[in-house]
């Protein structure tokens, strides 16, 4: 069953917590991965791979650069999840 927007944001928060150590409650839709959440370009690859597994979605490398905020990623996953 497809995840809701809310479930996706919750999932992303858990992933960002695991990778960057940011508290889950600080991972909000408006936050930038690199500027606000201490996710550098290498760690962003980890976030993407973890999100792909969790939400059964493929995020091609060329699309990753458009995922600036948690909201961008959640919208992308909502639209493309299997």
């Amino acid at each position: 069953m497809a995840a809701t927007q809310e479930e996706i944001v919750e999932g992303l928060a858990e992933i960002v917590n695991e990778i960057a150590g940011i508290p889950v409650e600080d991972v909000e839709v408006g936050k930038s991965f690199t500027d606000d959440l201490d996710v550098d370009s290498l760690s962003m690859v980890e976030v993407v791979v973890a999100a792909e597994e969790r939400f059964d979605v493929k995020i091609p490398d060329e699309d990753v650069k458009n995922l600036k905020t948690v909201g961008d990623a959640a919208d992308y996953i909502l639209k493309h999840q299997g």
Binding site: L42, S43, V45, E46, E52
Partner: peptide, 10 residues
């Protein structure tokens, strides 16, 4: 391949 850590080289 996809799961190899991007931090591997550093």
């Amino acid at each position: 391949v996809r799961r190899v850590s991007p931090h591997t080289v550093p």
